[in-house]
């Protein structure tokens, strides 16, 4: 700090202030570093539990085989169907949640009257506060029978049911983060675009979206993260069956639900136990890949 010190201020106090500032800076730095430490720590411990099995691991079978028979003798640990279950449910959920969530964000931020906006925001926050086990319950007892009737399928708990739940769970996140991103675009940009003769919609699509793209991408990613990581609701609503789905209404099984359902039964240190931790590593890698891709995309856009 090279601000000129006022003459009447005693010298000691200035030094104290400098020390204080350095302490704060150190503290903030520690907070930043601790985030990195935690991430690596989690990865390390999850990996360590699963690592002993790596020597026997047939990576091809682990990733692509759909034979998940952990209690057979010999056991088969093919997580292909689980991986596909997670990917398909997440993708389907995002296909529903992203357009809906972004649309709602645009409405709340750009088109709604102040009163409507306040009400909507409260409702959306309430939606975000519903515990996932309640969502699972809704999926089993409300959506399930409904899907069975409407689509004439034998089983109401299936990929579509779970995806719908995940969509409903991610929409509040996408809306509230997306709305923040849109609100952060200065009004002078809007007025400039409108002064150029653009309609409200042209302003949204041609100016607002490009201007807010980083924030909107973050909103979508947090939604994806929510969907991939969700466990309870998908355990209850997917049908939990490790098969390769052939239709939207087939039951599936996700990586998360597998861990939740089986870790309790697996003896600590057993093969099954280790494989479940490797599934955790797989899950971790998946979210990491999604985030990294998004980062690179954003950087790519920004470099222009």
């Amino acid at each position: 700090m090279s601000l000129p010190r006022s003459p009447e201020r005693p010298a000691g106090r200035g030094r104290l202030a400098v020390l204080f500032e350095q302490a704060i800076e150190l503290l903030i730095r520690l907070c930043g570093i601790s985030a990195i430490v935690f991430v690596f720590g989690i990865f390390f411990f999850v990996f360590r539990e699963g690592a002993p099995y790596l020597a026997q691991l047939d990576l091809g079978a682990f990733l692509f085989s759909s034979d998940w028979y952990p209690s057979n003798d010999p056991a088969h640990y093919g997580a292909g169907a689980l991986l596909l279950g997670t990917l398909s449910v997440t993708l389907l959920a995002m296909l529903m949640a992203v357009p809906f969530g972004l649309g709602a964000a645009v409405f709340v931020s750009e088109f709604s009257a102040p009163r409507t906006r306040e009400v909507l925001k409260i409702v959306i926050e309430l939606l975000a506060a519903v515990p996932s086990v309640v969502w699972g319950f809704i999926g089993m007892s409300v959506l399930g029978p409904l899907i069975k009737d409407v689509f004439q399928v034998p089983l109401g708990v299936n990929m579509f049911n779970a995806a719908l739940l995940l969509a409903l769970m991610s929409v509040p996140i996408i809306v509230s983060i997306g709305e923040d991103a849109l609100k952060a675009v200065p009004d002078s940009y809007r007025e400039a675009a409108l002064a150029l003769g653009a309609t409200r919609w042209q302003t949204v699509f041609r100016m607002l979206f490009p201007a807010a793209k980083n924030g909107l991408l973050a909103a979508v990613l947090l939604g994806v993260g929510r969907a991939i990581g969700e466990t309870m609701a998908v355990l209850m609503a997917t049908g939990h069956s490790a098969r390769i789905p052939t239709s939207l209404f087939d039951p599936v099984q996700t990586l998360t639900a597998t861990i939740a359902a089986e870790l309790g039964e697996a003896r600590q240190g057993s093969e099954h136990y280790q494989v479940l931790f490797l599934i955790g590593v797989l899950l971790f890698t998946l979210t990491f890949a999604v985030n990294l891709t998004a980062d690179l995309v954003v950087k790519g856009i920004r470099r222009k």
Binding site: Y189, A192, A195, L196, P210
Partner: peptide, 23 residues
């Protein structure tokens, strides 16, 4: 309309100028 504070839209230079004709 030329606003007092320069407002370059967060688009490329080309897209800034092409914005109105495209709209």
């Amino acid at each position: 309309m030329v606003a007092p504070l320069p407002v370059g839209l967060p688009l490329s230079i080309y897209d800034n100028v092409a914005f109105a004709p495209r709209a």
